[in-house]
Design a protein around this nucleic acid. Structure first.
Lengths: 159, 159
DNA sequence: GCACCTAAGTAAAGTACCTTTACTCACCCT
DNA sequence: AGGGTGAGTAAAGGTACTTTACTTAGGTGC
């Protein structure tokens, strides 16, 4: 472990550091998930799976959780349905509603992706501890609370 | 300042915290820059201005720094040229090259945006210190170094 | 019990921003 | 002079979203 007492990165703007760290962590995660056989899935699909994992949701509810229009949500569902990750069922409360639920294939993906993510974060934690640092969870949470308060908006795949 | 000893956010994945913090900080920054009269500029334009600020660059060099094709860089330059932020000059070393340089209008924007960014980050630092925390510069730098080593790739406006 | 409103879903076109493909042009080199 | 190399540009294609507009199921008021 090479010492980096005065890494010039530490003088760059927090905003840049946040963006760079996020981009690198996510891209490493996506690479590993791709290598595990899920190259057809993009990060937004993981968000969809998490939003649907408990009880499923209608496409409009999903749209709200993703922060996109209901048409966009419908298109994503179309795509995932064709690939066998979700199914549209008649909604128990009737109406035109349809309940979108995960298939076993999607639940298996969630399990694999979750394991990969925690493995990656564990490796990062180890590296930081070797440098006498901890993962900055409390700091990031404080930044988020400062800017968003109690209602955290959706995480969106764009700047 | 409400105490948050067990903010559930601190139990969520680092990757999510990074993405959320980045998205919120950037979006607050963009809002303030818009309010200062620069609603026509997107974050990527700030990256362009920073890449060109010292000596300018050719569109191909700019493309490499942005991590996009030279055609995409050319399109961005076309747009900024129409709006009066950059100019294409004949390149001192000749060839078909053109040197893209900033106008005074762009340098003024850089100055305003820089002030806004440092103000925002200062406010965040103050808030965190009230909670006994510091901005996690060293931690973020360590994460970046772990995943990217010495060659930091371009920060790109997509997941 | 029928007209009306509302909300969910869908269809199609439009938009933003990028890439791919293909070309032109200036200089260099032998 | 002919040919290669690399910068720049033009045009079409692709992706993922939004906007506009429609259909349909069920509640609501009278």
């Amino acid at each position: 472990m090479k010492p980096r007492d005065h890494d010039p990165l530490e003088n760059t703007e927090l905003t840049f550091l946040l963006g760079m760290a996020f981009q690198l962590v996510l891209s490493e995660f996506v690479s590993r998930v791709d290598a595990a056989g899920y190259a057809e899935l993009r990060p937004v699909h993981g968000l969809v799976f998490q939003a649907l994992r408990d009880t499923g949701a209608t496409s409009s509810e999903l749209a709200e959780r993703l922060g996109v229009t209901k048409q966009a949500a419908g298109q994503i569902i179309d795509d995932l349905e064709k690939r066998g990750y979700v199914e549209r069922h008649p909604h128990p409360e009737g109406g035109r509603r349809k309940l979108v639920v995960l298939t076993d294939k999607a639940r298996e993906h969630l399990s694999v992706a979750g394991r990969i993510l925690h493995q990656l974060e564990g490796q990062l934690a180890t590296r930081l501890q070797e440098a006498g640092l901890n993962l900055p969870r409390a700091e990031l949470a404080a930044i988020i609370r400062t800017l968003a308060g109690d209602t955290i908006p959706p995480l969106r795949p764009l700047w």
